[in-house]
Design a protein around this nucleic acid. Structure first.
Length: 553
RNA sequence: GCGCCCGUAGCUCAGCUGGAUAGAGCAGCGGACUUCUAAUCCGCAGGCCGCAGGUUCGAAUCCUGCCGGGCGCGCCA
């Protein structure tokens, strides 16, 4: 149990005593920016004021006297309008380091979502073309949400939903066939609404290299199958390059062949949630705030994409997940209401469905702004990003922002191998921790163990700051996991790296600030513990994002 | 026109779900270091938190209305 938990228990107990029978809110402990307001502070008296109908200052004072004296607390005071400010003994804060070292890779894991099961559906691009930068954001955020959930104790299933049928595949086949024939014939018309990307040309070239002119009279289906296989391989390779491992790929077509699309439609019909109009079958979504009801079966008797998608989500629900998470680009945001309405219509709890909408990405490269989706066929591919920037930078940069933000992706910065690039400065900090450990070993100083340190020796300002930040890690894990916001990890990592680097440099400026002081074994041990704990936290946080933590750079 | 998202330092963004004196990184200026990895650090400067109301002990955060930008408004996916 860390200090924060200890304190919040102490306060909760005292507050319960003061409140008598009244129910008390969750004790929130925050860390005031201003040092004079203590190491930790609670606003519980302020929030109790209303229910108890008493002045907050009075309540705060009562709580403080109910707390009495506690070994971890050196000073506790009440400040207007009713804050309780707590000062903690350095050693008791530093002792948290022992816990970090003892738990190692497990440090920071939260039990908040233990026993819960989540399905995270992401990427889900259809095999009609290479993955682009929008998919890259989807992939990076999606996998990191999954990881954040896992760190919070949740068991996670990663799934990719795709559709390799229908008109889009016919168009793909037609496009390839046209490009293929153009290699050795003239006057071939390119289909009006075909796919114009360069990749079609590449596929055509490869196909022609393999079969020469012999496919001249092959059917569109054969061309679309060829193109699909090619693209699926691309997508799979991209996912491997991103370090993403899907537990399953789910094909929309299966929902038709095994009759589940029809089944879910008759289910909706039985429940009176759909109606016939103008020769089509409509789902009532306006009841959930949609601007209009949506068609499930068109007047030509074919189904819209919504129909199988409802069947798919019904399937997810029936698999018993507590959390059904989808990652959708902002251009599909209006889709959320429909899905939600459909789930409600089927009596599934719509609260379990969490659609994470990420905004579209703008890329700044070479001082120029490249707006995504400007022209068809002219976009930055995920493959290009990974091969030029690397998986670590791609993951980090997409998770630097909330998914709500209309982010600008600074390509040149992501590519830069310098301190300006946050990924590198963080990884560098980790490598430095490792380097100190190596240096110590060279000098014959071995770490004696977390239990053998006198943490009260860590009194320097830089040390205290770092220790306090390290102790915050479990909260970050919990926050990121419960809010599905992995960007908290990147913000946190930056502050740790910054504080560590400041500490390290202090040692370069002042001899006494060095970690390894051969003349002072006790202090060296305590500082080594701090370095090793920093390393643990950096590594765990990087791992939560799927980013490597190099020992040497 | 309607719906969703955004608006915080010159730029890119955080702000832990309503807390105390608004935070970081770039860029700018000035400094430190022949190190435990300079792929570093310290200091300075820079703000009507888009605007106007409201809610309350307390608002960048919640509500309403404007203004500006992005996205979406098909029996397409």
């Amino acid at each position: 149990m860390n200090i924060r938990e200890t304190l919040s228990r102490i306060i909760a107990r005292a507050a319960a005593e003061v409140a008598g029978g009244a129910c008390i809110p969750d004790v929130m402990i925050d860390t005031p920016r201003v040092k004079a307001y203590g190491d930790y502070a609670s606003n519980i008296a302020l929030s109790l004021a209303k229910t108890l109908r008493r002045p907050p200052m009075e309540i705060a004072n009562d709580i403080v006297s109910a707390i009495g004296s506690q070994p971890v607390i050196t000073k506790i005071e009440v400040k207007p309008p009713g804050f309780i400010n707590i000062f903690v003994r350095d050693a008791s804060a530093a002792a948290g380091l022992a816990a970090i070292l003892k738990q190692g890779a497990l440090f920071g894991r939260s039990g908040k979502l233990t026993g819960k099961r989540a399905i995270v559906e992401f990427v889900s691009a259809n095999p009609t073309g290479p993955l682009h930068i929008g998919h890259a954001r989807n992939a990076a955020v999606g996998d990191c949400i999954a990881r954040a959930l896992e760190r919070a104790g949740c068991s996670v299933w990663r799934e990719y939903y795709y559709n390799d049928g229908g008109v889009q595949m016919t168009r793909l086949g037609e496009s390839l066939k046209a490009r293929y024939l153009l290699i050795f014939l003239k006057d071939i018309e390119f289909p009006e609404d075909g796919y114009h990307g360069d990749y079609i040309g590449e596929i055509a070239a490869q196909l022609h290299a393999e079969v020469k002119d012999s496919w001249k009279d092959k059917s569109i289906t054969e061309f679309s199958d060829y193109a699909k296989d090619w693209i699926v391989k691309l997508i799979d390779a991209d996912m491997i390059a991103m370090g993403i491992n899907f537990d399953a790929k789910f094909n929309e077509g299966d929902l038709y062949t095994d009759g589940r699309v029809d089944a879910v439609i008759s289910e909706l019909r039985g429940r009176g949630k759909v109606y016939d109009s103008e020769g089509a079958l409509w789902l009532r979504t306006t009841s959930d705030g949609d601007e209009k009801d949506r068609v499930l079966i068109k007047s030509d008797a074919t189904k819209t994409y919504l129909a199988p998608d409802i069947a798919y989500h019904a399937d997810k629900y029936s698999r018993g997940y507590d959390l059904v998470i989808n990652l959708l680009g902002a251009d599909h945001h209006n889709y959320v209401i429909r899905l939600r309405a459909a789930m409600r219509a089927l009596d599934f709890d719509p609260e379990k469905l969490n659609c994470i909408i990420y905004q579209l990405v703008t890329v700044k490269r070479g001082g120029e702004v490249v707006k995504f989706g400007k022209r068809a066929g002219d976009y930055i591919t995920l493959h290009e990003m990974i091969s030029e920037l690397g998986q670590d930078a791609v993951r980090f940069f997409f998770n630097m922002r909330r998914s709500d933000s209309h982010m600008v992706f600074d390509w040149d910065l992501a590519k830069e191998h310098s301190v300006k690039n946050p990924v590198y400065s963080i990884q560098y900090a980790h490598a430095r921790c490792c380097s100190i450990e190596r240096k110590a070993a060279e000098l014959g100083i071995m770490f004696a163990g977390a239990g053998a340190c006198d943490y009260s020796l860590l009194t320097a300002h830089e040390e205290q700051e770092l220790i306090r930040s390290l102790a915050e890690f479990p909260r970050i894990v919990e926050l990121a996991g419960t809010t599905f916001e992995p960007h908290h990890y990147t913000t946190y990592l930056r502050t740790i790296a910054e504080q560590f680097n400041a500490y390290f440099t202090a040692g370069n400026v002042t001899e006494e600030m060095r970690v390894i002081l051969p003349g002072n074994p006790a202090l060296s041990q305590a500082r080594l513990a701090l370095i090793l704990a920093t390393r643990v936290v950096l590594r765990n946080a990087l791992d939560a994002l799927g980013i490597s933590a190099p020992e040497k750079m």
